[in-house]
Design a protein around this nucleic acid. Structure first.
Lengths: 230, 230
DNA sequence: AAGGCGCAAGAGCATTGCTCTTCTTTCAGA
DNA sequence: TCTGAAAGAAGAGCAATGCTCTTGCGCCTT
C-alpha cells in the first residue's frame, strides 16, 4: 500500500514543497508579518482558496517556515563546526556561524528568535527542531570537559534548578557536566542571541559601529562564563 | 503667542493623549501587530479617517507607543533603583525591575525589544527614549567604581572599538571607566535582555521551569562579567 | 468681518484571511 | 471494470484592514 505513494500523494508533497519555497522567498523579501497567503498563491498561479487545502491557516504555513528556519540554522552551524577539533575554537566558530546565518537571513532569524507573531502560539512541531540547534554546543562542551579545557562549577544547586539542569543535561547529551555548568550554559546561549538580537533589531544603531569585533569580544566573555579556558 | 495654547491646540493635545491611551490598552490586550487604527477610532467613538489627522500612519502611532514604552520601562527601573545604596544590590534590583516590567507588560516589551514590526524603521524619536533606559546602569557602575567594588579591565582596546567605548562612555555618563569595562557592559546588558527575550518569547518552554532563580543566577553571572564584586 | 485652516464624517479602493458552494479528477473496493 | 467516495480546483463572497478623497462645518487669526 505504501510501496509507492499514489500519484495524488506525490503531487501533494511536491505542491507543499513548492508552497513553502515560495513562502520562504516572500519571507526573505518582506518578513513574516507581510507574508500573505494570497501572494503565495499568486506566485504559484493557483487560486487562494486552493492554498488553504494544504495549509489550512496562515499560522500553519508559518509553523512550517519556522521549522525550516530552525533546520537551516542548525545545518549552517553543523557545517561550520564540523572538523574543528579544538573545543575553544569550536565555540568561536559556532558563534560566528550563528551570526553569519542571522545576518544573511534576518527575517528567518526574527521569525524564530524575535517576538512571536500576533496571536501565534508555537505548536509542538517546532520543539524538536529548536532542540537540534543546541546539539553542537553540547558536543563542544563534552569535548572540552574531556580535554580538561573546562572549569566546572562544583557548587551544588537547590533541587528546583537541579531539575532544570537535569533537563538540560538530557537535551545537550552531556551526562558528565555538573549542574552549575549546565545552568551557566543558559547565560552564554541567551547572551549570544541577546547580542545578535540587539544587532539585528537595530538596538546598536548610533552606538556600536564595530559590530564584528564587538561580537567576537562578546563570544570570548560568554565562553568564559561557561568555564571555557579562553 | 505661545502664552496659553489656543483651545484648538489643547483639544488636539488631549485627543492625542486619548488616542495613545486607547492604543496602549489595545496593545496590552492583543499585541502590536493586531493594533488597528479602526479599532482605536471605534473605541474613541470617532470615525477612522479622523484618526489619520493625528497619526497619519499606523507606524506613526506605533512610534508613539514605542517611545511611551521606553519611558514606562525607564520609569519603573528608576523607581525601583532609587534609594538602593549598594551598587551590587542595585544591579540586582535594576535587573529584577526590568524583568518585572517585562512580565507585566509583555506586549510592550516585545514592541521595543522584539523583532521590529514589518517594514517598520525606527525613527530618530525613539533613540533618546531608548538611551534613557541605560542611565541607571551608568550611575550604578560609576558608584561601584568609586566605591572600589568594580574590577576594571585595564587592557587597551584597538582604536575602532575604542570609538564605540567612547560613545558608550558618553551615553552612560561614566567618564572614569576604561574601555574594556565599557565594552563588557554591552555583554551584560544584551545578556540581560537575551535571557528575558528567551523567557518571554517561549524559548524556555519545556526546558527551564524555575524561571525566577534562573534569572537571578543569570544576573549574578552577568554582573561578574562587567567586574562587579558579586 | 471674513477668509483660511483645522477638523469630522463618510464613501470608496485595494488588500487581506478564510468560508462555502460547485464542479472535476482521482482512487479504491466490489 | 464499474462506481461511489474522497481529494482537489475554482470562484464568489464576507468581514476586516490601512489609507485617500471629497464635502461640509466651525473656530481663529488677521
Amino acid at each position: 500500500m505504501n510501496a509507492s505513494r499514489t500519484a495524488r500523494e506525490r503531487a501533494r508533497a511536491e505542491l507543499v514543497a513548492e508552497i513553502t519555497a515560495a513562502a520562504r522567498r516572500q519571507l526573505a523579501d518582506t518578513g513574516a508579518a507581510a507574508l500573505s497567503m494570497r501572494a503565495v498563491s499568486r506566485e504559484l498561479g493557483m487560486v487562494s482558496s486552493a492554498l488553504h487545502r494544504y495549509f489550512p491557516t496562515r499560522d500553519d504555513l508559518l509553523t512550517a517556515l519556522i521549522v525550516q528556519s530552525y533546520d537551516a540554522l542548525a545545518d549552517a552551524v553543523e557545517a561550520a563546526v564540523d572538523g574543528v577539533p579544538d573545543p575553544v575554537d569550536r565555540w568561536r566558530t559556532l558563534a560566528r556561524a550563528v551570526r553569519s546565518w542571522a545576518l544573511a537571513n534576518p527575517h528567518e532569524y526574527a521569525l524564530i528568535y524575535g517576538s512571536p507573531v500576533p496571536g501565534y502560539r508555537a505548536p509542538a512541531d517546532t520543539v524538536p527542531a529548536a532542540a537540534r540547534g543546541i546539539a553542537p554546543l553540547g558536543r563542544l562542551l563534552a569535548d572540552a570537559h574531556a580535554a580538561g579545557l573546562l572549569t566546572v562549577d562544583p557548587t551544588p544547586v537547590p533541587p528546583g534548578p537541579a531539575d532544570d539542569a537535569a533537563r538540560l543535561r538530557a537535551a545537550l547529551h552531556t551526562p558528565d557536566l555538573p549542574d552549575g555548568t549546565l545552568l551557566a550554559v543558559i547565560t552564554a546561549w541567551t547572551g549570544l542571541f541577546g547580542h545578535l538580537s540587539f544587532e539585528l533589531f537595530g538596538q546598536f544603531e548610533n552606538v556600536l559601529e564595530h559590530r564584528d569585533t564587538a561580537f567576537d569580544a562578546a563570544v570570548e566573555r560568554l565562553g568564559r562564563v561557561v568555564g571555557l579556558h579562553i
